[in-house]
Simulated assay, not measured.
Amino acid sequence: MNTDYADLAALTRRLADIPAEFLGEPSVAGHGEMAVAAIVGDVLRMHGLHASGELLAGFQGRSAHADRNRLALAAVACWLLADEALIGVDLPHPALEDVVGALVAEMAAITPAHAFVHDAERREELVRALLARLGLRPLGETPAQAQDRLSAISAIQRRALLAASRQAEKRAREVREALARKVAEESADKWTRE
């Protein structure tokens, strides 16, 4: 996050004002009206990137259960990426592909797509995460401030911290159990010697 970008409020407001067409039902297995692959292709083209057929195939959707939320969030992220201020920035193509691919998948695995439109904190989380992946930060914030705020509201980071905490607790429990076994063995050895 080395480059100043723009008014964070303008992008979060853009999310709040998203057209209904971007909130439609994604086309999955022949059902739904929103062709997310076409939206992704168009937005990437706006940024000067010709999306490969392989990349776009990931936005076709084969299973409503597995793909619906991810595709819906991809359309929402594309609405953000289509902002005129972002179109005017020379964004690295791998970062753009990462936003519509990996970032969207990570966020969709945790939070329903429409929450990123209807909930103010989730809107800010999506905008901040998108900017961070693109190497940008909100205007007027230092890199540390931008990272701290993203960390404070990021469901992805909360999930990672919880997983790490669970792992640490599991390891501590294993160590306690091993120590208790060792004490019990030493005590049994002492009793058999006496």
Rank of each mutant, 00 (worst) to 15 (best):
V43T: 15
L80R: 00
G48K: 11
R133K: 08
A6D: 10
V89K: 11
S63C: 10
A6M: 13
L131K: 01
E97D: 08
E97A: 12
Q60S: 10
K190S: 14
A38G: 12
R158V: 05
R176Q: 14
I39N: 03
R137H: 14
E33Y: 03
L126K: 03
M34N: 08
E194S: 13
G32D: 03
L130A: 02
H47V: 12
L80Y: 03
V36P: 05
Q147G: 09
I39D: 03
A120I: 06
G53T: 02
A95E: 11
L150F: 01
P94T: 03
H65C: 04
A85L: 11
Q157C: 03
Q157A: 01
H93T: 10
G41A: 13
A29L: 12
L15T: 01
R62W: 12
L8S: 01
H31W: 11
A115Y: 08
E141R: 09
A38R: 14
A120E: 09
D148G: 10
A164N: 10
I156L: 08
T12D: 03
A10P: 06
R122V: 06
V40A: 05
G48D: 11
E125L: 05
E174N: 08
A16C: 08
A74Q: 07
D4T: 14
V28E: 02
Q60Y: 05
A10V: 14
G88R: 15
G88H: 13
I87S: 13
N2C: 08
H118L: 09
Q167Y: 00
A35W: 03
F59R: 02
A51L: 05
L134Q: 13
A109G: 14
E106A: 06
R166I: 04
E174F: 13
A64E: 15
A168H: 10
R68S: 07
L86N: 00
A35C: 09
L126V: 05
R13F: 13
V183F: 11
A82M: 09
H118K: 10
D17V: 02
S27V: 09
R149E: 11
E125T: 04
E33T: 15
P143G: 06
S165T: 11
